[in-house]
Design a protein around this nucleic acid. Sequence first.
DNA 1: GTGAAAGCGCTAACAT
DNA 2: ATGTTAGCGCTTTCAC
Lengths: 331, 331
Amino acid sequence: MASMNDVAKRAGVSIATVSRVLNNNSNVNDATRAKILKAIKELKYQPSRVAKRLRSKSISSNLLGVLIPDIQNPFYVDVFKGIEDIAYLNNYAIIMCNFGQDEKKEKLYLEILQSEGIDGLIAAPASEDDPQLKKMVKDGLPVVCVDRGLTGIDVDVVLVDNQKGAYNAVEYLVKSGYKRIAYISGMTAIPSSRLREKGYLEALRENNIEIDRNFIKYGDSKHESGVRLCDELLKMPNPPDAIFAGNNLITLGALETIHKRGLRIPQDIAIIGFDDMYWSNSLNPPLTAVRQPAYEIGKRAGELLFQRINDTERSCIQMILKTDLMIRSSC
Amino acid sequence: MASMNDVAKRAGVSIATVSRVLNNNSNVNDATRAKILKAIKELKYQPSRVAKRLRSKSISSNLLGVLIPDIQNPFYVDVFKGIEDIAYLNNYAIIMCNFGQDEKKEKLYLEILQSEGIDGLIAAPASEDDPQLKKMVKDGLPVVCVDRGLTGIDVDVVLVDNQKGAYNAVEYLVKSGYKRIAYISGMTAIPSSRLREKGYLEALRENNIEIDRNFIKYGDSKHESGVRLCDELLKMPNPPDAIFAGNNLITLGALETIHKRGLRIPQDIAIIGFDDMYWSNSLNPPLTAVRQPAYEIGKRAGELLFQRINDTERSCIQMILKTDLMIRSSC
DNA sequence: GTGAAAGCGCTAACAT
DNA sequence: ATGTTAGCGCTTTCAC
């Protein structure tokens, strides 16, 4: 790889001048500029982002971090796509950190990110109390949280109203005549899981449906726990007549169990999921679900991040997007 | 962020000694080491990967690139997860480049990757003839290709036998009694699309089924083209009785169209897909599909990459994994 | 308008 | 066993 020095030599100028034409700020003689441009072309010179980053942390390093709990969850994939589209517009590359809801892994990734000298970070932290991430925010790293916030510190956040979304879903179940409604929760360490439970409880309470604690199952937000917890629910002596699944992976797992048991949906057991997927229509049966605008969450987060990178002083924004109940035929 | 200099000062030693304990290669006096370790802790010092990378390209920069065409395709997500697990084991971070099958975007990402001084790259290139990527391989960058190779140059490749997978799928369709079998292809620029077509044609030919060119539709490997091309197929005066869908996104799109038209699967139209998904069982009906071991592809590619990083001279390997026909009830 | 030189944080000879 | 120093590729004063 040719360096600036090579270019300078070839063009018969100093590296300072090369730097000047590259960043076309100061005035450079047209003839000199032409010579340099020619040398750059001939040598196929590409500036090193690494050297640039080392040299001045103050200036754009064109690198940002994305820290998410589960890339195999389609929700985060869409969020990522939203972020990426914005990053690309700004000529930024992304270090992707998928920590699998493992706090140790998250910690290591956070260290790496810091060590890489990123310009900014978009994160869905393992816990809203994450001390390490909080410290990074305090130290001035531009951070935008998605899906989950951070307590006790001012930070930009983009998420949906989880409680309301869950409330709407469960209320719809109630209005449809279901009375024995179960909830399969994701990890309770995740704020959204707790808020969805709150929405669930609220909807039951307001509709005078007795709350049965045995109908609330706690898992780890993954497919497998949907499979297992749905099974536990269905083999109860007096099983539920409807299930509210805490996220898309859980929903898919629950569907698997229901189908394995040969039960009909919604006649034998109804189901409604949090998180829509574009293939929800092709599921058996078409799934009724609470849709989060995942792509938009990512896009907005990306926009907020670049705003903050360009203006560290701007006051923090909490952006709450709305959910949509996509009514199909699983309940 | 504390630097090595800060640590050295605090411990009352030179930066060289600090570097020594950090890379614990040379001998350092135990007392000195202790002092330095203490200073590191107190300052919460973290080495800068950026400086390290700038300093010596020869040594591990702990950064690698992943270049894939579509992160919203679950196949690539699983491949990525496989890569990531291996990268994490080696303390590597990943720059994720999702080029959306857009050659211009791919080119820019490749430039960025080079400019970031990555140690190695795992790529599913837009074309098997990609001159830029080829040049990077020639220039000595460790590269492993997944899903698609590179012509005219020696490079490690991990993929499945696409032709055989397709052959098996279409043969299964034939054996099941279908005679009017259509193929919805992904982008023909992608080798796997062409190989799957070859397998499709081969299976028809060997079973003495007349090939109808109108039954082959070419799209762009995305959901939308599955929706559209399946529709074109179904509104033919004499439509097919079975569809072989070129990848998972196309399959999902085709399913959407079939359901929208209120057709029964497999009575009215049968479907078999390339690429399995873990929720295939929950689709309507459970989908028969050719399974690629996506996670393993990523994992193997990661392993090969680290092998190559550690031994640039090792001769290239082409690893061909096998596909499985997952028989369910969509045909 | 252009060049010289310092320095970002680190590693690796080369000294001592 | 430890320190000194050059240099990775770049930006940015400060001269001229």
